[in-house]
Design a protein around this nucleic acid. Structure first.
Lengths: 145, 145
DNA sequence: GTAGTTACTATCACTTTGCAAGTGACCCGT
DNA sequence: ACGGGTCACTTGCAAAGTGATAGTAACTAC
């Protein structure tokens, strides 16, 4: 058994959730995506307590989803940018949004629009092998040897 | 402003996370998906404390992702089944799993296999309008009127 | 009637969250 | 050079949430 297996188990979902399985982390990611890269922007946007935000940002940076970028030398100021690992998570947020839109009540909702077509995106999770949306074909869980 | 907007805000991601934005809830969903529908199955599988599991199951049932089904009248025993709302969330778990597999270390990992083809699925979030994976086209956030 | 199964609830220690206030490093106007 | 403002936090402390352990309730099987 490798170190990774001991620390995190063999379930990739579990591993993912260990890093970002909480509300604030995902909302921070959402905010950074929409251009709120600085501490105070995120704080006022989310209405989160300063200590909590500092902890989340440190955790996300530690986990490799965000990285600090110095945008001012004097006074020293950093903003937070998505790493590739962080950018890779954004589609999942979009999928959660689509689920929320379908199932969690009405009213006016923000949405993401494809700049080229002008249409609101409709995120769907498919299997890249078959092209079929998940949930339309039978699946089986397979354990490692 | 509607009641929904007051209660949940206008961001569908936020709304989604309000209902299931925690680690245990998602892991419970994963377990139910793989056939662990009864309290003790889930508890031993996850190694979760009984009071915590009871609370999560009640919350997920309340939120409409699970429903109780009586499988024995005497003694009265219920198991937990996914509702449509719950099943709709499963592809997101698969996407989180794919992200975890790519970014969170190696070792032996469980995976989901398409029963018909025998191949491990590769979950990808696409925009149903264009068919393009999210992250490959420019998006813009649009606020409600 | 005693042991086992299943699904919890109750108690309580411990951890995390979050509000409010304060700190440090700087810039800018007068 | 001194007061005010901005930005990115840190500290202190109360409140809420989490989780290990133990106990309860409603049975069944022997």
């Amino acid at each position: 058994m490798t170190d990774d297996e001991k620390k995190f188990g063999t379930c990739p979902i579990d591993r993912g959730l260990t890093l970002i399985g909480d509300r604030w982390s995902m909302l921070v990611l959402r905010d950074v995506q929409r251009g709120f890269t600085r501490y105070d922007q995120i704080r006022t946007s989310l209405g989160i307590a300063p200590n909590i935000l500092a902890r989340r940002l440190a955790a996300l940076t530690d986990a490799g989803l965000l990285e600090k970028r110095r945008y001012s030398q004097r006074p020293p100021r950093d903003e937070y940018w998505l790493t590739e690992k962080g950018r890779d998570f954004l589609p999942i947020l979009a999928a959660i949004g689509a689920w929320g839109r379908k199932h969690n009540g009405g009213g006016a909702l923000t949405r993401q629009v494809d700049v080229a077509t002008g249409e609101a995106i409709r995120p769907v999770v498919i299997d890249a092998n078959t092209g079929a949306p998940l949930g339309t074909r039978d699946l089986r869980l397979e354990y490692p040897d």
